[in-house]
Each structure stands twice: as C-alpha cells, then as structure tokens.
C-alpha cells in the first residue's frame, strides 16, 4: 500500500522506485505499466459506454416526446418547460434544498463532534463507535419504516411524552405538510452521521501526536486546537465527507418512499421520486429524462467545485 502511494508522490522520488524500461532509447510514456493499463481497459469501456453513453442517451431523449418507449421525435424544450411549471417538481426541488442544506450542516457538525469526543481516548470507544455506526448498516427502507413508527403520534415519541404526563405535547411531523421534510431529515441524519463520524475519526487519528504536543506547549486550548489547527489539516477528509453527503442528498429516494411515500399529499416529494414516477408509472419517459437531466446538472454543479478543491488544491499543497 505504502509503495503505491509513494509511486504517485511528487517527481523527485520517481527515479528510485519506478522500474526503468529495458530499452533506454524508448520514451517512457504510454508503454509504462502496460499490464495495469490493459487491466483497466474493461472498466474504462464500461464507464464510457454505460455511464457516459447512458448519460448522453438520456439527455438526448429528454428533448423528445417519448412516452412508454423511447422515440426520436424532438420537441425542443417542451419537457423542460412542463417540468418547471409542475408544482410537484418545484416542491421536490424545494424539499431537496431544505433537506440538503440541513443534512449537510448537521451531518458534518454532529459527525465531527462525535468523532472528536471519541478521539479524546474515552473508555469504551469501541462500543460507542459501534452504536453510532450501527444505523448505517440498515437500509434506508428499514430506517424509513422504523422512523415512520417512531414519529407516529399514536405509537411513538408523542405518545411516550404524553404518557409521561405532558398531555398537550404535540410532535407529529409526518402528517403535517409544512414540516414533514424535517421528519425525513431526522431519519436521514440518524442513518448517515455514523459513517461521517467514522471517516472523521480516521482523519483525526491521522493527525500527528506531535502537533497536539506542540499545541499544548504553546498553551492552546483543546477546542481551539481542533478548530484552528486540526480541522484545516483535515481538509481532504472533509472534502471526502462532503462528497459522500452530497451524493447521498441528491439520490435520496428510498427513505422518502418508505417513510411517507411523498405524503401528506405531495409535501415530501423529492426529485428522484419524480423521475421514477414519471418514467414508469406515468409512462412518460421524456418527462422523466428531463427531470433526471436536471438532477445531473445539480450533481455537476456540486462536482465542479469539488474537483477544483481536490485537484486544484494539490498543486498548492
């Protein structure tokens, strides 16, 4: 593992580690590591055909009036016009924005806080780590159903609090169109923060002990050390966590289906559900494709800053 990591490290290390080609006259560009390159051809082809090809196909057909079967009768931007004048889509986007914004902030904050607490070398770290990570082992469908019960006013939280004597307590997010998305957010956070915590913890463990010692010598407090020194050093970990959370946000579907199925009414609809519904249930592929193209666009909008941070950052560091 460490060998390969060093192999990709900056220029000066290279002469020692890379195997020189037998024929010194030949330029060592394309033919180096032939076997590795050959081995990656299937994956490259798969990516090109399945992902890139499929994406282009979808985008092209989003400009057609395809119904149940894809047909190439172009209608220009009609599907997009209809999409952006559909209330259900607008609600979906709004929900995604709310869910995304809070999910991003809370997952990072809670994940990092938990990781930092575990990092203080507490007793029973393994047990806590397992408990926090456990929800991640459950699928979104199970998570959604479990929280549907927990948030059910007659069975869950509301009932428990009322039976403890607080009769007027009301907590019924899943049946209130205005706040239903927060009910889903709670379940999403419960499921997702564990993973981010583990990633953060790994990052924290990667911080050199010397840095802590140096901070202590300089008399910097623990919290300040975390915020001013450790977090900036963990930038790559944060970027990874950010991408994981963001992709989870955009593809959210099963949690909603299991927990509320978009209800009450259409108050908790999300874009991925719109895509599936229109492609298969409404038998309107063109509309579904247009919606999924909009989702792709939002992924690209997230991807470009990430790529900039990740690849642009390396040069500076």
């Amino acid at each position: 593992m460490s060998d390969s990591e060093m192999g990709s490290s900056p220029e000066p290390a290279e002469p020692f580690l890379s195997v020189r080609p037998k024929n010194p006259g030949k330029p060592s560009g394309l033919l180096r590591n032939m076997s590795a390159k050959l081995a990656s051809i299937p994956m490259i082809l798969t990516t090109m055909v399945v992902f890139v090809g499929g994406t282009i196909w979808t985008v092209v057909y989003s400009f057609t009036s395809s119904k149940l079967l894809p047909k190439l009768n172009f209608v220009g931007l009609d599907q997009y016009e209809r999409l952006w004048s559909t209330r259900r889509w607008l609600i979906s986007i709004e929900n995604l924005a709310i869910y995304g914004f809070f999910s991003m902030i809370f997952t990072l904050v809670i994940g990092f806080t938990l990781a930092a607490l575990l990092d203080r070398k507490i007793r029973g770290e393994n047990i806590f780590r397992t408990i926090f990570l456990y929800p991640f082992a459950l699928s979104f469908v199970v998570t959604g159903l479990a929280w549907q019960w927990i948030l059910n006013p007659d069975l869950g939280v509301q009932n428990v609090v009322r039976s403890m004597g607080w009769e007027s307590f009301t907590f019924n997010p899943l049946n209130d169109p205005d706040i239903v998305i927060y009910g889903i957010l709670i379940a999403g956070l419960w499921q997702g923060t564990g993973l981010i915590m583990v990633i953060m913890l790994a990052g924290l463990r990667g911080i050199d002990e010397e840095i802590w010692k140096a901070a202590r010598v300089d008399g910097i407090g623990t919290v300040k050390t975390y915020i001013r020194i450790v977090i900036p050093m963990m930038r790559p970990v944060f970027v990874t966590a950010l991408v994981l959370i963001a992709s989870g946000i955009i593809k959210i579907y099963d949690l909603v289906v299991a927990q509320t199925n978009g209800g009450p009414g259409i108050a908790s609809e999300v874009p991925a559900k719109y895509v599936i519904n229109y492609m298969f249930r409404a038998q309107n592929l063109g509309q579904g494709f247009a919606a999924s193209t909009m989702m792709l666009l939002s992924v690209i909008i997230i991807l470009i800053p990430w790529a900039y941070l990740e690849f642009g950052g390396k040069k500076r560091g």
Binding site: G262, G263, I266, A267, A282, Q283, N284
Partner: peptide, 19 residues
C-alpha cells in the same frame, strides 16, 4: 386518459386534499 395525464391529476388531487 393516458397514464401521464392521470398521474398529473392524481398529483393535483393529492395536494388538494392535504392542503
């Protein structure tokens, strides 16, 4: 009506009844 139109009406009704 096509499945497409019916889905649209259904979405409208779902929203109407719960709002």
């Amino acid at each position: 009506l096509t499945a497409d139109t019916q889905t649209q009406i259904e979405d409208l009704m779902a929203e109407f009844w719960s709002s």
